[in-house]
Design a protein around this nucleic acid. Structure first.
Length: 436
DNA sequence: CAGGGATGCAA
DNA sequence: TATTGCATCCCTG
C-alpha cells in the first residue's frame, strides 16, 4: 500500500498507461470514456444536491404507525398469552410452533423453523395471530427502516444525501447507501405514504422519468425474437401478449389473474427461472409451470435460443458482456457443484439484460445532465432508481424539461425495438401525474 | 463490537 | 429451486 497521498498519486500515474491498455484490449474504452468517467460528475452533483424531505410530515406519519403497531402488538400478546419479542424469529417460532402448536411447514436454510412471510400467509387464514404478526412486521419494517432511517439522515436543510457506488454491483448497476434511496417503499398504503415525504421545494416540482419495460425490450433486442420485437414495435401490452400466447386466449379474454401470471413469467424468463421456481411463484404444480414455460418458448422461440447461446458463450469464455461491452466474469460456470454452476448460468442469462439496462441508464444520465447544464435549466437530477430518474425542476420549466428528458432517454441508444420513457410530475414522489 | 442469519424493501 | 442490491434486528463469539 502507498504510504502517502504523494506516493499514491505516483502509483496511479505509473498504473495509468497499463490500465488504459487493458481497458482498450477489453474493448471497454468507449464505455469508460463516454459513460463511466463523465458519470462521476453527474453522481457528485446528485449527491451534493440531495433530495428534500418533509420532516414534519414524516414525524407525524411515524407516530401514527407507532400507535397502530402498539395496538397490533398487544393483540398478539393477548392471543399468545405471553409477552415476548415479536421481532426475534427465534422467540416468535417458539410461541407459534411450540406454545400455540401451529403447523410448521418450512425451515430456513439454517435448519430453524421459518417465520418468513410466505409461511405466515399460509397460516393467516386459520390463525389470527399470523395475520397480526404480518401486520406488525410491515409496520415496524417501514417505520424503523424508512421513517427513522430517513429522519436520522436529513441535514439541517432537510435534505438527504445518499452515496452512489458506481462500481459496487456485478452487473454495472449503481448501488445506493446511507441512506439507500433505491429501496424506498412503492406499494401498500403505508409504503405510498412514505414516498409522499420526498418533496419538491417551493417554486419547484418533481419529475419522474422511467424507462418502460426496459429489460424486456433489451431481451427482445438481444434475442432478436420476432414476436417479442413486434409486440414492442406495435406498442402492445407485453404481459397481456404473453398471457395470450401462454393461455391460448384472445387479448380481450385475458383476465387480471392471467396477466399477473404472465408478468411473473416474463420477469422469470429474464432471470433464468426453472419450472420449480415458477411453480413456487405462481402457487401451482411444477408440471403445470413446465407446460406454461413450453408454451412461452413456442411463441418466443428465439428467447430460448438466446438463453442457450449466452450460456454456451459463458462456458467458452468464462465471462459475459453487455451491449456496451461491460464484462462479468463467471468462474463458476463449470463448477462441479450443481448449485453454484446453475447460479452462474442464471447470472449469464440475466447479466447482459440487467447490465445493458444499467449501461443505457448511465449513458442517459450523462446526456441529460449535460443538456440541462448547457441549456441553463433550473433543474437537477436528484435520484436514480435503476430504470427511473427523479428530477427537481423549476415550476415554469417543467414541460420543457420533461420533453427534453424524455427525448434524451429514448434516443441515447438505438435498439431493434423502441425505448420508451414515461414522464410524471408532482409535488411529491408518492403522488404523481403522467404528463408524457 | 463485528459479523452472520433472517427478514423484507426496491428495480 | 429467479437477478441485482442495502438496512434493520437478533444473536453469538
Amino acid at each position: 500500500m502507498p504510504a502517502s497521498v504523494c506516493e499514491l498519486a505516483l502509483t496511479v500515474a505509473e498504473l495509468s498507461p497499463i490500465l488504459e491498455r487493458e481497458v482498450k484490449e477489453a474493448e471497454m474504452w468507449e464505455l469508460w470514456e463516454h459513460v463511466e468517467m463523465p458519470l462521476i460528475f453527474v453522481l457528485t452533483d446528485m449527491e451534493r444536491h440531495g433530495v428534500l424531505i418533509d420532516v414534519n410530515y414524516l414525524r407525524q406519519l411515524g407516530e401514527e404507525m407507532m400507535r397502530a403497531s402498539k395496538q397490533v402488538e398487544e393483540r398478539i400478546y393477548q392471543i399468545a398469552g405471553v409477552r415476548f419479542n415479536i421481532r426475534s424469529p427465534q422467540q416468535l417460532a417458539e410461541v407459534l410452533f411450540n406454545r400455540l402448536k401451529l403447523p410448521m411447514p418450512k425451515r430456513t436454510p439454517g435448519g430453524k423453523p421459518s417465520t418468513a412471510a410466505p409461511v405466515l400467509e399460509a397460516l393467516a387464514k386459520e390463525h389470527e395471530i399470523a395475520r397480526l404478526v404480518l401486520e406488525f412486521r410491515e409496520l415496524e419494517k417501514l417505520r424503523s427502516t424508512f421513517i427513522e432511517g430517513l429522519l436520522s439522515a436529513v441535514d439541517p436543510q432537510h435534505r438527504v444525501h445518499t452515496t452512489y457506488d458506481q462500481t459496487g454491483t456485478a452487473t454495472g448497476r449503481l448501488a445506493s447507501s446511507e441512506p439507500n434511496l433505491q429501496n424506498i417503499p412503492a406499494r401498500g398504503d403505508w409504503g405510498k405514504k412514505i414516498r409522499r415525504a420526498f418533496i419538491a421545494p417551493k417554486g419547484y416540482r418533481l419529475i419522474s422519468a422511467d424507462y418502460s419495460q426496459i429489460e424486456l425490450r433489451i431481451l427482445a433486442h438481444l434475442s432478436g425474437d420476432e414476436a417479442l420485437c413486434q409486440a414492442f414495435e406495435r406498442g402492445e401490452d407485453i404481459h397481456t401478449q404473453a398471457a395470450v400466447s401462454v393461455f391460448g386466449v384472445k387479448p380481450e379474454e385475458v383476465t387480471e389473474d392471467m396477466r399477473r401470471k404472465a408478468k411473473i413469467l416474463n420477469f422469470g424468463v429474464a432471470y433464468g427461472i426453472s419450472a420449480y421456481g415458477l411453480a413456487q411463484q405462481l402457487g401451482i404444480e411444477p408440471e403445470e409451470a413446465q407446460r406454461i414455460i413450453d408454451r412461452y418458448f413456442e411463441r418466443f422461440p428465439k428467447v430460448r435460443n438466446y438463453i442457450e447461446q449466452i450460456v454456451e458463450f459463458a462456458r467458452q469464455n468464462k465471462f459475459v458482456r453487455t451491449l456496451m461491452n461491460r464484462r462479468r466474469f463467471l468462474p463458476d460456470i463449470d463448477n462441479p457443484d450443481q448449485r453454484l454452476r446453475e447460479a452462474a448460468q442464471r447470472a449469464a442469462i440475466n447479466t447482459p439484460v440487467q447490465g445493458t439496462s444499467a449501461d443505457i441508464m448511465k449513458a442517459a444520465m450523462v446526456t441529460v445532465w449535460r443538456g440541462l447544464k448547457e441549456r441553463g435549466y433550473d433543474a437537477h437530477i436528484t435520484m436514480q432508481v435503476h430504470d427511473e430518474l427523479v428530477l427537481e425542476v423549476a415550476e415554469g420549466q417543467v414541460l420543457e424539461v420533461a420533453k427534453f428528458v424524455k427525448r434524451q432517454m429514448e434516443s441515447v441508444f438505438r435498439l431493434k425495438v423502441p425505448l420508451v420513457a414515461e414522464i410524471k410530475v408532482g409535488d411529491n414522489w408518492g403522488e404523481m401525474e403522467r404528463i408524457l
